[in-house]
Structures are given as structure tokens and as C-alpha cells.
Simulated assay, not measured.
Amino acid sequence: PAEKRAVTVALVGQPNTGKSTVFNMLTGESQHVGNWPGKTVEKKEGRVFAGDKEIYIYDLPGTYSLTANSLEEKIARDFLLKEQCDVVVVVVDAGQLERSLYILAEVVSLGIPVIVALNKMDVAQNRNAVVNPEMFRQKTGLVVIPVTASRHDGITELLEAILHFDSSRTLQSDRFPEINVPHFDAVLQKIQGRFSQGPSAYWLAGKLIEGDEDVAAMLAGQLSSERWQEIQELLPSPEQGQLAMATARYDWIRTILPCLVTSKPAQYRRSGFDIAATHPFWGKTIALAVLFFGVIAAYLIALPLMIPGFAVFFLAEPLQQFLSSVFPLPLCS
């Protein structure tokens, strides 16, 4: 029998994008939950057999970026940089594309194979937003699969895309998010073509601009001291670099977003009562009926409250006469 070939898949996404639901739908019961080595963060991995392939799927911790400011971000980044993933599935929230596309802007710059799982399509539809997966493919050059994981919609198509994905198909550098940041191109030229393995020079240059200490330490040990000194002279302060890079990524997102999402006017579906209430004849009939029953209801509620008042009114004079006979008032002199 043919030997099964193992495929490694990493699921990446921001918190609350439905990434874990996608993982559960892909792996079913064939999953293991533990901790990452030496860490307290939960590690979830699953295995799926499909045809002649054995697929190992890793649900990386939810992360907003690959800056490694938190333990979750560091774990996700280390896995993407050090493990030989055949494909990375970036799960984005179709209902909140502007926010959840930020992590995609970083992952594609790594130069690794990426599939986009466009999750929560039902949420986008409920918000009267039309998300166009085909336009998404054209604008980014990525494989895009629309998914509603909570209903298992699109999960089969996503698994098929993983099985038949060409691992050599990485995003070309001219399709990377455009970074209009001072000295970015100069830093990129200093390191481009220096590394045959690992993340792309494009991603490394961005991290240097951001003041990433881990990337700086790695490059300082691999470049000549002269070249490293030249790069350091080009770098802004970490605060300025991080703000500039974040702005550039969001500019890229806002550039493509209008092509991906269009809003449709909310369509109000008239009920049977709406139709009857606005009818020329039945509408007036209903209005008179409501008025009639409203008056009746008002009297029925008010009557018990009025009875004590009527009783006091009619009994006031007899009660006064009775009290006068029992307690006669003294005659005035």
C-alpha cells in the first residue's frame, strides 16, 4: 500500500474569529489537548486522514499580531518560524474584516503558503454585508474559502483546499501589503538575498522597523558588523516604528476592503398583520376595533376604583345626619 504522506497545517487567527470552531470541525474527535512545552498556554492538535495523506492540524493561540509582546503571540510566531508548515490557514471574521485582517497582513509577509478561511459568513449576512470571496482572491492572490464553521458550511471545501494546495505557491513579493514607511526599502535592500531559509526579508525588515529584539538579535548574529551598523543607523525608535508599521498595514486593509465588502439595504419583510393594518378597509376596521376595546378596557379597569368614590359621595349626607342626631351640636348663644 502507498505510504501516507504527512501534511502539517497551522490555524492562525485573532481571538473570537471562530478559529477553534474551525479546528473542531476539521478534526472532530481526533484531537489532543495539552500544553506547549514549558508553557501554561493550551496546545491543541488534531490528526485527519484523507486519501493518501495524514494531516496534522495545530490550533495556535489566538493572537492579534506576530510582535511577540505576549506569551500567546510568541508561541504562535515561534511555531510559524521554526516548524515546517505545509500550509497556514488564517481564520478571519467576515463580520469584522477590518480588524481581523491585520494578522493576515503579517502572516502573508512571512512568505509561507496561506489559505484564508473566511469564517462567520452568516454573521456578515445578518449585518447586511455582502463579502465577495472571489474579489478577495483577486485582490490578495490567496486561496479564499468562505466558511460558517458553526453550521459546518465550507469545512469540506476547506479540507479539500488543504489537500490539494500547492505548497510551492507562496505570495509573490509584489503582492505583499505595501509598506510606505521611511527607510523601510533601504532596510529591505540591506538584508534581501542574504537568507535562503526562514521568513522573507520583507517580514524581517518590518520587524526591524518595529524594534523587534528577537529579530534584531538573530540578524545581528548573521550579518557582518558593518552591515548591521548601517541597518541600525536607518532604524527609527521602536515606538515610532511600531506605529508606522501598524498604520501601513491598516492602510493596506482599508485599500482592499471596499472591494471585498458591500452593504445591501435592509429589506423589511411585511408580516400578515402589517398588510392587514395598512389595507384601505381592514386597516380602518382594525383601528376602530382597537379604539372600542381600548375604551372598554379603560372602564373595566377604572370601575373598581370609582366604586369607593361613589359610595362616599352618596353616603356623605345620611352619615352626617346620623352623626348629628347622636352628637347634637351645642346651640349658639
Rank of each mutant, 00 (worst) to 15 (best):
G13N: 06
L26A: 08
Q31F: 07
H32T: 10
G34H: 05
G38F: 10
T40W: 07
V41Y: 07
G46A: 11
R47W: 02
V48I: 07
F49A: 01
A50M: 03
G51R: 01
G51S: 02
K53S: 08
I55C: 04
I57H: 04
D59E: 12
L66G: 05
N69H: 10
E73H: 04
A76E: 01
D78M: 10
L80F: 11
L81V: 08
K82D: 14
E83W: 05
C85D: 06
V90T: 13
G95I: 09
L97N: 11
L97F: 12
R99L: 09
R99F: 05
E106M: 12
S109N: 04
S109Q: 08
I112P: 00
I115E: 02
V116I: 14
A117S: 11
L118R: 04
V123R: 05
Q125V: 00
R127A: 08
A129D: 08
R137K: 15
Q138F: 08
P146N: 07
T148K: 03
S150D: 03
R151G: 01
G154N: 03
I155M: 07
T156S: 14
E157Y: 06
E160G: 12
S168R: 13
L171E: 02
L171M: 12
D174S: 14
N180P: 01
H183K: 14
F184R: 06
D185E: 15
L188C: 05
K190T: 03
Q192L: 04
R194L: 04
R194W: 00
R194N: 04
S196R: 13
S200H: 09
I209L: 12
E210S: 09
E213Q: 12
V215C: 07
A216P: 00
A216W: 07
L223Q: 03
R227I: 09
R227E: 12
E239P: 00
G241D: 10
D251N: 15
V261D: 09
T262L: 11
S263Y: 15
Y268D: 09
Y268C: 05
G272P: 06
A289G: 11
A298Y: 11
L300H: 05
L303N: 10
F310T: 12
F314M: 12
S324F: 11
S325H: 13
V326Y: 12
L329D: 10
C332A: 13
S333R: 09
